[in-house]
């Protein structure tokens, strides 16, 4: 149990560091930045309760906010994703086993996994960009940005998945 928590904490820190130190510096075409750190929430197994998922999500966003000087924006978006994540997991995930399901391509199937990731990532990005702008007047640009960044994030996540699959 402690081992699992420790591992999760390490991956929490790992994703944050990766995001802060590396990915945030990527500004492809001037505005496209992959927000891979959401992947941490998407990867939480089903054994983690909805409340804990929310707390993890909130903390994840909050720490990132502190580092990025966007206090609240990421926390808002990640909490939202953390709230939706269990429902999406139930919807896209396999229906047969419920004991301890860690989302992955193997368990979901490629199609379902891509949808699961794509929707949540898009929702996260859109929420984040709109909250960041703090107005709906930039909705279309935010949508474009969210879609572009989502594609990047999705590609990164999928490459991570393949990496994991190959290691196994």
């Amino acid at each position: 149990m402690i081992d699992i928590t420790l591992k999760r904490l390490l991956s929490f820190v790992g994703f944050l560091l990766l995001q802060i130190l590396l990915l945030n510096n990527i500004k492809f075409l001037g505005f496209i930045t992959p927000y891979l750190y959401v992947y941490f929430i998407l990867l939480l197994p089903s054994s983690v309760s909805k409340e804990m998922t929310l707390v993890w999500g909130f903390l994840l966003g909050l720490v990132l906010d502190i580092f990025c000087d966007t206090l609240g924006c990421n926390a808002f978006a990640t909490t939202f994703v953390a709230f939706l994540k269990p429902y999406f997991q139930n919807f896209f995930g396999p229906k047969d086993d419920f004991d301890d399901l860690t989302p992955s391509i193997d368990r979901f199937g490629f199609n379902m996994f891509v949808q699961y990731v794509a929707y949540l990532v898009l929702i996260h990005h859109l929420t984040f960009f709109l909250i960041e702008a703090f107005t709906l007047s930039v909705f279309w640009f935010a949508l474009l940005k969210a879609v572009c960044c989502s594609v990047f994030t999705l590609l990164l996540i999928l490459s991570f998945e393949y990496f994991k699959a190959r290691r196994r």
């Binding site: 929310l54 999500g57 909130f58 924006c73 926390a75 808002f76 909250i131 703090f134």
Partner: peptide, 21 residues
């Protein structure tokens, strides 16, 4: 409780955003 936790956390986030702005 999930919903309330969610709303609570979002409120905190929102408060932070507003405060920060």
């Amino acid at each position: 409780k999930t919903l309330f936790l969610f709303l609570g956390l979002e409120l905190i986030s929102f408060w932070l955003i507003v405060n920060n702005n």
